[in-house]
């Protein structure tokens, strides 16, 4: 078909129904996503601060200054306000959270895939963390992580005697764990449900055949389950990465309800950009950082596309 393609216009005319179908979505996307995005990109070329805020897009155009500041000027405001550290932490955070979420989700999915009484109930209960809003998760874990009065230190120190002393979770190096664990806790049920749905699609014949061939449980998992689930976990990987790089709410709520600075190991890209934009009124710089983050994410998606796109489109997703 590709070899003898009719002229483009004719093709388009033939598919006018298709265009009609996507038109509403296209309009919505244009208004809600692309107009703001273009404005944001344009903002990143401006010197938009408290003085020029009212002019908005009429603010002085400074070209690539904001980008140069972020990328090459270690003495610029954005840099000394910890954007580099935030980028590092965000990367670690997003990787750990995404992988841990999928791993935990997969483990639980395998556990819940077998037949047993009350399976539906167990699945529903395990799904509960996902329905809790992120703001509430941040608030709740903020209380739980407290040094003296927090339930976690109480359980670890007073009940289980795992720790000799009650550590700080909300100040210092431990803050990284304090934001990773709640995010994983909230995120894994979704991965579990998706992977469970994927598991149910895998025909039992594969396993029967593998058993006859003498494959043990690990081999069956490694050579059948994992590859066949690839469309699911690849999608989860992609969306998990996107979601977690842009994570904001949990960190924002956990450290003094949005008050100050979560510390070098708790500050993520989004909280940093939020402070730069809405706290310090450096909207131009904030927009530039957002655009860079977006470009980075697009790069990641291209990499992902390269490795996984085929599996995903060929599969059930």
């Amino acid at each position: 078909m590709k070899t003898a393609a009719p002229p483009l216009l004719a093709q388009m005319r033939r598919h006018k129904h298709a265009y009609a179908f996507i038109l509403p979505t296209l309009c919505a996307m244009f208004l809600i996503h692309f107009v703001p995005m273009l404005q944001g990109i344009y903002m990143s070329f401006l010197r938009l601060n408290q003085i020029t805020l009212r002019q908005y897009l009429g603010a002085p155009f400074i070209g690539l200054r904001n980008y140069v500041d972020i990328l090459f000027n270690p003495q610029s405001l954005v840099r000394i306000s910890g954007l580099g550290q935030a980028a590092k932490v965000t990367l670690i955070y997003a990787f750990v959270v995404t992988l841990a979420t999928i791993a935990l989700g997969l483990g639980m999915a395998l556990l819940l895939h077998r037949e047993f009484k009350g399976r539906t109930v167990a699945r529903t209960l395990f799904f509960l963390p996902w329905i809790i809003p992120q703001f509430v998760v941040g608030l709740l874990w903020g209380f739980m992580w407290q040094k003296n009065e927090g339930i976690i230190n109480f359980v670890l120190h007073d009940c289980l005697h795992l720790l000799s002393d009650k550590p700080f979770w909300l100040i210092g190096n431990n803050t990284l764990w304090a934001i990773i664990i709640p995010t994983v806790w909230r995120g894994w049920p979704f991965a579990m449900i998706m992977l469970l749905a994927g598991l149910q699609q895998i025909s039992d014949e594969y396993y029967q055949a593998a058993k006859i061939d003498g494959a043990n449980a690990w081999q069956r998992f490694w050579h059948i389950t994992l590859p066949l689930l690839k469309p699911v976990w690849a999608t989860l990987l992609l969306f998990g990465m996107i979601f977690n790089v842009y994570s904001f709410n949990i960190v924002y709520m956990m450290f003094g309800l949005g008050a100050g600075y979560p510390g070098p190991w708790g500050d993520l890209m989004m909280t940093n950009i939020f402070r730069a934009s809405f706290g310090a009124y450096r909207f131009g710089a904030g927009a530039a950082a957002s655009v860079l983050l977006m470009l980075f994410m697009i790069g990641m998606v291209l990499v992902w596309n390269h490795y996984f796109k085929k599996d995903v489109t060929a599969g059930n997703l």
Binding site: Q11, H17, H33, Q39, L293, M294
Partner: peptide, 28 residues
């Protein structure tokens, strides 16, 4: 249908996910 631009369209949908939420606030 496989119409011209269908690939672009589905990529665009994915791209919408790349935009940081903070960028939306003031423009919208």
């Amino acid at each position: 249908f496989e119409f011209p631009g269908s690939n672009l369209f589905s990529t665009a949908i994915l791209a919408t996910q790349m935009i940081p939420g903070l960028m939306f606030l003031i423009p919208i």
